[in-house]
């Protein structure tokens, strides 16, 4: 590519500029990496050592920090809750979202635009601001302090963008494929299952990642709805743990590592999908 930044053929002024930019990028890369690295290393130290030698490696790797946080800190339960709640919510978002996108993009009928707009209403307006009526509603349905209640909210939270992205994709699937399937005797459900869904797999992956991150990380709704300790999700668990163990920095660093490191490990292996998925709402094509 002719416009790649090249160092060797550049003029002196440009060389200085490129060096400056390269330095900026390297500095920022360190600034991104180091706080996370320091957290992970500190999680194996004792609090005293963290205070005295914040930048050194631990003299003795204290794995028991993790054992404490996982067992008596309750993080084993929080982790499990987060996994259960996130996976069921995502399954529901993908199932109902793809069905709705199919119903909105593959059929023409009078109310189509109204239905589509109903789904889209959740994109611009923040659901957080509707928390009072939502709380009263969930209380009347006896769904406060329940995992099911959270799953319902997360499903609703994920549907608007999912329908938007999937409907955009499904609209482009040629009608002829559908007609051919009909002639072969497929009904609408079979067409959805055996024609539309397999062809939409790439966008389904995208949408899954787009939803999984905010749902896994969400703190606000568990904060409002969950009061029992054994129903806490990971982010809520981190918050309550932080409040309880203010001065035990070793345990806090271990708890934060449990909340942060798994995501990074998955990201290392799937960074391409994450980057594409997370920016899906903001990038065309």
């Amino acid at each position: 590519m002719i416009l790649n930044i090249r160092f060797t053929q550049a003029s002196f002024g440009k060389k200085i500029l490129y060096t400056f930019f390269q330095l900026l990028l390297v500095t920022y890369a360190v600034a991104v990496l180091y706080p996370v690295l320091n957290m992970f290393v500190s999680s194996f130290k004792s609090t005293r050592e963290i205070f005295l030698n914040p930048f050194s490696l631990p003299t003795e790797w204290r794995f028991e920090n993790y054992a404490k946080v996982w067992k008596s800190g309750g993080f084993g339960i929080y982790f499990l809750n987060s996994i259960i709640i996130t996976s069921i919510s995502i399954a529901m978002v993908i199932l109902f979202g793809s069905m709705a996108a199919n119903g909105v993009s593959r059929y023409t009928y009078k109310m189509r635009l109204v239905v589509y707009l109903a789904f889209l209403s959740g994109i611009v307006l923040p659901l957080k601001a509707a928390i009072i009526p939502l709380f009263l509603l969930m209380r009347n349905l006896h769904l406060t302090n329940s995992r099911l209640g959270l799953i319902l909210i997360f499903t609703a939270m994920g549907l608007p963008s999912t329908v938007f992205i999937l409907a955009g994709f499904m609209r482009g699937i040629p009608k002829e494929l559908e007609y051919a399937a009909r002639i072969d005797g497929c009904n609408d459900l079979m067409i959805y299952r055996h024609v539309i869904m397999p062809l939409s797999m790439s966008s389904i992956t995208l949408v899954t990642i787009y939803n999984i991150v905010p749902i896994w990380n969400d703190f606000f709704f568990p904060l409002v709805f969950i009061s029992s300790e054994n129903k806490r999700t990971l982010p809520l668990g981190v918050a309550s743990f932080f409040g309880q163990y203010q001065i035990a920095w070793d345990l806090i660093f271990a708890a934060l590592s449990i909340a942060i490191i798994p995501m990074i490990i998955i990201y290392v292996f799937m960074s391409k999908y994450f980057i594409k998925g997370m920016t899906a709402g903001a990038v065309k094509g």
Partner: peptide
């Protein structure tokens, strides 16, 4: 009926959890 079948589950959840609270507030 097919349209209803595809659209309804999502529409009900969105109406109850998003649209109703928006208007209620």
């Amino acid at each position: 009926l097919w349209v209803l079948f595809f659209v309804m589950p999502g529409l009900i959840i969105v109406s109850v959890v998003i649209i109703y609270p928006l208007f209620a507030s």
